[in-house]
Amino acid sequence: MSKSDSSKSGNDFISHIKGMGFAGVYSKYGTILIFIGIFIIASLIDPVFLTGANLVNVLKQLVVVSLLAFGVTFVIILGHIDVSLGSVVALTGTMAASIMHYTQNIFVAVLGGLALGIVVGFANGYIITKFNIPAFIMTLAMTTIARGTILLYTGGRTISGLGNFKVIGQDSIGPVPISVIILLLFMAISWVLLNKTKFGRQIYAVGGNERAAQASGINTKKVVLLAFIFNGILTAVAGIVFMSRINSGQPGGAVSYEFDAITAVVVGGTSLSGGTGTVVGTLLGAMIIGVINNLLNLMNVSSYWQQIVKLSLGLLFYWVSRTCLRCTLMPRRTRIIILF
């Protein structure tokens, strides 16, 4: 309701920024600022970080977490959660590896893995919507069910003899790794789905206010079910990439990957209470996690310490983003203290 004409002309970026206020700027650009900050810190700490080979490595490493994070972004915008990602990565990826082992046909193996992902996503979504079971409980159960199933199937043994299965995770087209192409492809799909389709609008609506969405003629259960299926597909893609990268089927692999994915989503600005969130934010969140992972590796920090550091940082980011939603109500000095 400002009487100025600046909003009318609409192209004055500075006045646009001013109009948004601090919380507005933070919620829009905060994640990218954190990313830039961490990137600079990483390159200062270890000169190896900025080398081309290492950066490609960073990208390759964050593919799996990013794929998981894109899928679970949909679920979290809906106000639900999925804590079974790591186990389902192991289930779908190892199963795809197993199919590869027997058929030596990469297409059949990939399709098999994806189909299993759809089944898991459907099971999660169907039980949550049909029986009104909280997503946390359902997917917590799925964590054990998925892991148990694949351990049972493989007898706990690693599956090898996978022929050209490793192409997906290890080969490149020109300088670009295939896994990164897969990442970009699914990022584009996720972005289009969320921003340009009816389905995306319905996800935001159901996550923002389920009753109002229903009163607008949206079949809310169907939306939730479809989002979990999409999440299942992306988890399977991540599973296939994961197993292909290590060229074996590891039924005990990808433990607690859900935490990296959920942290990425939260750091990327998606609210756990639903209704808001973006794909680009999630990618930035995943990149922040990826850079931190890489840096800790370069510094030879033990993997146990890495987990502690990573999740503590996750908590910190979560706190900052939550706090800064209320920042406009605080004195300027407090805001600065909180930010730095």
């Binding site: 609008r201 935001y204 609506a205 923002g208 206010n209 009753r211 109002a212 969405a213 009163a215 609210s271 209704g275 808001t276």
Partner: peptide, 12 residues
């Protein structure tokens, strides 16, 4: 409660 998605835009 039933009319608006408060956290989304007027357009949406």
């Amino acid at each position: 409660d039933e009319g608006l998605i408060l956290c989304r835009s007027v357009l949406e």
